[in-house]
Simulated assay, not measured.
Amino acid sequence: MMLSIKKLFAGLFLLGFIGSTLQAQISPPGLGDANTAFWGAFGVKRQLDSLGKKQALSYIAIGRKSSPDDHNLFSKQAIIVLNHEVYHSFAPHQQYSYAISYRRQPQYENTAPYDKENMEQEFRIYGRYAYTFDLGQKWKLKNTVRQEFRKFFDADFHQVEEDFQFRTRIKSQLTYNLSPKNNQKLALSAEALFSISHLNEPGPHWGSFGYREMRIAAYYMFTIPNSPFTVDVGYMDDLIRDSRSIHHGGVHYLAADLIWNIPYRKR
């Protein structure tokens, strides 16, 4: 089974490298240490003005992951996410956005049978700035800086070990317009994550700021003919610093999302 999963991931990676770019794909979040994981999302993307410079993307998503000793990417519930983000292309090649997000994530024991230990809730706000370079008629390179504030609670809104966190994400994404038919695109991206946390235990104190993760992803995107829907299918490798999975090539994700595109309507 492990060999077949590796073949599937390798195929998705090569597909992503050959083909298209990411427009509004919903990238997976980190789901912690595991072997494999699945991420699925449904989003609604709305045009907010007649010029197409302002957009909003709202989505609901779920994540599942394997146990540390197997490779079944649907084995355990990993996360539920509600997210709303507003984008503004305020100048040629430049865009900023801001967002609010709620996440509910089970925590599991570190030893077999890896039963659920508790539930963690997260409230997140973030903003990002992106600059896009046109590299000829078919290629684009988008560089993004994203700053996040993350606040954590248990299931009853009591404090947990990690109080809150500031996290910086730096991402580069190369996109290729594969074909105008069904707006097919391929995208390849790499993202580095740095953070610092305020901790509640063993007493209130700050951790150290540093590099935490690298996420490498490849996506194929297309529009469903005669419909307002776009589909994004991809692979992500999450390389978590000092994790068990880092010794086995990281956490391997299969990801898919469906986005309903709603055009601007004058009220």
Rank of each mutant, 00 (worst) to 15 (best):
S4M: 15
S4C: 12
I5G: 01
K7N: 12
L8Q: 15
L14F: 05
I18P: 08
I18M: 15
T21L: 05
Q23I: 14
Q25C: 04
S27F: 13
P29K: 08
G32L: 03
G32S: 05
D33S: 08
F38E: 06
F38A: 13
K45S: 02
R46K: 10
Q47M: 04
L48H: 06
L48V: 01
S50L: 01
L51V: 04
L51K: 04
Q55A: 08
A56Q: 15
S58W: 10
Y59K: 04
I62M: 07
G63C: 03
S66W: 03
S66K: 02
D70W: 00
H71I: 07
N72A: 02
A78M: 01
I79C: 02
V81P: 01
V81S: 00
V81C: 06
L82F: 10
H84D: 06
V86Y: 01
Y87P: 04
F90K: 01
P92R: 10
Y96T: 06
I100D: 12
I100F: 15
S101A: 11
R103Y: 04
Q105E: 12
E109V: 02
P113A: 13
P113E: 09
E117S: 11
R124S: 05
G127T: 08
R128M: 07
G136Q: 11
G136A: 13
G136L: 11
Q137P: 02
R146K: 14
F149N: 06
F149Q: 08
F152E: 01
F152R: 02
F153W: 09
A155V: 13
Q159K: 15
Q159C: 13
V160S: 11
E162C: 06
F164N: 06
Q165D: 00
Q165M: 04
T168N: 11
K171D: 08
K171Q: 15
S172R: 14
Y176M: 09
L178Y: 10
S179H: 05
N183A: 14
Q184Y: 03
Q184A: 07
K185V: 03
L186G: 06
A187P: 07
L188S: 13
S189E: 07
S189R: 02
E191K: 13
E191L: 14
E191N: 13
E191I: 12
S195M: 07
I196N: 14
I196E: 10
I196S: 15
I196P: 05
S197P: 12
H198A: 05
G203T: 09
P204S: 05
P204L: 03
G207E: 02
Y211P: 11
Y211V: 10
M221R: 06
M221D: 06
I224H: 07
N226K: 02
F229H: 04
T230N: 08
V231R: 04
V231A: 05
L239H: 13
L239C: 12
L239T: 05
D242C: 09
S245W: 00
H248A: 11
H248I: 08
G249Q: 10
G250D: 11
G250V: 00
L254Q: 02
A256D: 07
I259Y: 03
W260A: 09
R267G: 12
